[in-house]
Amino acid sequence: MKHVISVTVENKPGVLARISSMFARRGFNIHSLTVGPTEDPRLSRMTVVVDGPEMEQIVKQLYKLVHTVKVTELDPTETVEREIMLVRVNAEAARRGELLDAANLFAAKVVDVGASTVTFEVAGEPSALNDFLELMRTYGITSLVKSGRIAMAKDLKTTTKRSRLRTA
């Protein structure tokens, strides 16, 4: 079972190494990890997708790192998840039209065209990316790069806040 955790850390040199070293040392498996700046320049946010049953320990061990500010395990039903990928597929002239039609269905953007390949950019739900890859396999994938998942909890408070405003 895969779990998605959002980890807010202090934006300090080496913080990524600290997190990945802890995962390695404790024998926790990382499926994917992304990291980037946040709305606050002092903080970075990581989205870590992990495999395995030791969620409670993972969260506690993350908190134990001095630079970890907040750890949230995201509930898949209340989370927006996105991933981007670049995928290069075989495209002989004869099958190009058919290939582009298929890509259209997924809103895949053509970002590079070679003599016998086409490269697509696809962004969206991780499951949609996988569906697209399934489809592309029939043409032959020659190269694939994925960004890893980023995720954010939905703002479930929005509606109640608004309605409260309205009644006030």
Binding site: E56, Q57, K60, Q61, Y63, K64
Partner: peptide, 8 residues
């Protein structure tokens, strides 16, 4: 004092 020890 270390929450990670509890339940480990």
């Amino acid at each position: 004092v270390d929450p990670a020890e509890i339940g480990k």
